[in-house]
Design a protein around this nucleic acid. Structure first.
Length: 483
RNA sequence: CGAGGUGUAGCGCAGUUUGGUAGCGCACAUGGUUUGGGACCAUGGGGCCGGAGGUUCGAAUCCUCUCACCUCGACCA
């Protein structure tokens, strides 16, 4: 894009100048969300909610394909339930909101607004489960949760956020682990194929794991500014909650046993990830799979005979196969519309004017590259379909390339600091497993362990010496500063 | 919760130092000319200057106290 064009989008601060400002500019100018009267609570506007609905659709489809059913649990959880699992309450207590009154009357027991639903769900599971024949329980719920955050940012960290939480119960530890890994795999697949977000997957350190889990697995995406975003987590909760909530069943040996539990979630934070991975100085760039509008038809010289009719004819035909909009607003120049829809991240713009109609063609402009081509109106649906697929793939490839460019290795602390400063992003380094080393890296560099990759992705760097203490280390970890 | 910053029309800002009729750009409305990368002319509507106290003949401006929001840190999806 030329200099002149860049200057035309006056409303958005360039990324290089001020990345956080760029982010807030983009979300407000594109009307994804707005601030509400209550701090930390955001209003998701139609365009932003449209993206969320599509994200939901893709994940929900895969959840159902993997055997899960949706359900819904209440918003409020009695204090006595929340406090049953010790690690869990310790982790969440500082950020729960409490309901103390019903009308004017003080409640006998205060109720918390769910920060997550393990406790209320397990309290019900214990009523429902009797026999191994009923297992596994494969349930999910779409809802919102509240965590009273001190610092909030739209989509990335809000006091209330929309998410899904899957809660499954299994006969054996192996099955719970299998489910945990399977859902992490589903997350990665949808993130990469539908949201075009390349993610690193792996395990969280003890320090970073979920309060009340045996193990937490995560997918981590890398943003344009080199910071990582935890984009989804899958927890193996072992028997922490099943024991605390006395969930028991008669097993195959006719003995009472505690089952094994897994939970997994993704949230509206993903929208923040999409913005910060794909966006540019002109605004949003949306992957076709989750774009509320995949193609916008812009009539040129629309006052002229036949132009609007043709635009609508094309729009209606394409509308059967794609999510489209015909921008026939009067009083805005085509140039203004071009910029407007570019800012909104619509993958393809279709221009149709008198010259095109004469030649039985139209102009297609792609958002990801800015490239414009004239194509025939014959076979247009196929052309558009292929182009959308190409854009989807290109966005993923670009993001992956960016991540690779922003990934460094470090042998020791000095090198760690240098590479992180010169090329902010992921730093691959050996880690001995000691909490002290993890803390020290964090303290001195601001980077935390984002994930410890699985066997197949593991490498031994620098003769297996811990980046911090130099002692033998078996595992390589991905470090980064994070949102 | 620590450190900075900002609150004036829907949005972006000037005006505050030195108190004296509340302004500019964009957006909005109406009419007209335009329309292949943010068109132009004319006319018009819109404000307890975040809130509460105080000083003063007079406060957006000075003083005190508050509230909200943004950014950066510490903590989390």
């Amino acid at each position: 894009m030329g200099k002149k064009d860049k200057n035309q989008v006056k409303e958005i601060t360039p990324m290089d100048v001020d990345f956080p400002q760029w982010y807030t500019d983009v979300i407000s100018k594109t009307e994804l969300c707005d601030y509400s009267p209550v701090k930390g609570f955001m209003v998701i506007r139609p365009y932003g909610y449209g993206i969320w609905e599509l994200i939901q659709k893709h994940f929900d489809k895969r959840f159902k394909e993997t055997g899960h059913e949706n359900m819904y649990f209440p918003l409020l959880i009695p204090e006595s339930l929340l406090t049953k699992e010790a690690e869990h309450v310790e982790g969440f207590a500082p950020e729960v909101a409490w309901v103390t009154h019903g009308g004017e009357k003080e409640l006998a027991e205060r109720l918390c607004v769910r920060p997550t639903s393990e406790t209320i769900i397990c309290s019900m599971y214990s009523k429902w489960l009797n026999s191994y024949r009923q297992l596994p329980f494969l349930y999910n719920q779409w809802c919102s949760v509240v965590r009273w955050e001190k610092t909030t940012r739209p989509f990335l960290r809000t006091s209330e956020f929309l998410w899904q939480e899957g809660h499954t119960i299994h006969e054996t530890a192996e099955e719970a682990q299998e489910e945990t890994m399977k859902m992490l795999g589903v997350y990665k697949e949808v993130a990469e194929n539908m949201l075009a977000l390349p993610v690193m997957v792996g395990q969280k350190s003890e320090k970073e794991k979920f309060a009340g889990a045996d193990a937490t697995y995560t997918m981590e995406a890398l943003m344009h500014d080199g910071q990582a975003l935890q984009s989804g987590t899958s927890h193996n909760l072992g028997q922490h909650f099943t024991k605390a909530f006395d969930i028991t069943f008669l097993d195959r040996n006719n003995e009472q046993a505690y089952p094994f539990h897994a939970s997994w979630g993704v949230s509206t934070r993903l929208i923040g990830g999409i913005i910060m991975v794909h966006g540019d100085d002109s605004g949003l760039v949306l992957p076709p799979e989750i774009a509320p509008i995949q193609l916008v038809v812009i009539p040129v010289a629309q006052h002229k005979e036949g132009v609007l009719d043709k635009a609508w004819e094309i729009g209606k035909a394409l509308g059967k196969a794609f999510r489209i909009k015909v921008d026939d607003q009067d009083g805005y120049s085509p140039g203004w519309k071009f910029n407007q829809w570019e800012m909104k991240g619509v993958p393809i713009r279709l221009e149709i004017g008198p010259r095109d109609i004469e030649n039985n063609q139209c102009v297609l402009a792609r958002r990801d590259t800015g490239e414009k081509v004239s194509v025939s109106l014959d076979g247009l649906e196929e052309t558009v379909k292929a182009l959308l697929a190409e854009i989807q793939q290109n966005l993923f490839d670009k993001a992956q390339k960016m991540r690779e460019e922003k990934t460094s290795v470090a042998a020791d602390m000095d090198q760690f600091k240098t590479v992180l400063k010169e090329n902010p992003g992921f730093v691959k380094a050996m880690w001995c497993g000691d909490r002290a080393c993890e803390d020290k890296v964090r303290e001195e560099t601001g980077a935390s362990i984002r994930c410890i990759p699985f066997e197949e992705e593991q490498e031994t760097l620098f003769e297996g010496k811990c980046v911090c203490c130099g002692k033998p280390a078996e595992k390589m970890a991905y470090f980064a500063r994070a949102y």
